[in-house]
Amino acid sequence: MPPSRTEASHLLALCLPALDVVTPHLLRRVDHALDGTPAASLRDDTQIVLAEAINNVVEHAYTGSGFGAVAVSVSVLATALEITLTDWGRPVPDLALCEGRPDPTLLSEGGYGWFLIRSLTSETQHVRVGAENRLLMRIDLPMA
């Protein structure tokens, strides 16, 4: 289903180095952008989801290639907050394939990132377009 662009309110677009030390800065910028918008109540979920998505770019898309950039775009649609991430790293697997729920009794030290994204989003789309990875994530706005 295409996003209803006519009703979209674009909040923020920025492009920063995909480095884990930069991620907190990027998260703060997005957090401030949500202040006073219909998506303000989604601030915590947005921080969790966005941190995991950016970590994935840093750890997987740019593995072994030094580092690159990540572009983040945030919009409020009629019924959802939409976050789009673009990177220019190597192709990464579609997160939709990473089904399942981590078993806490295994005491795994990783493997929670995509699960957290899936838990808190209503929709994700992951596509490779030319040399770009594009990840679109939507978090539903609370019903008015």
């Binding site: 921080q47 941190a51 970590n55 005491l107 795994s108 030290e109 990783g110 929670y112 990132g113």
Partner: peptide
């Protein structure tokens, strides 16, 4: 704030 890396570190 904690992310999955931080959660993994607590585990």
């Amino acid at each position: 704030f904690i992310d999955s890396s931080g959660l993994g570190a607590v585990v």
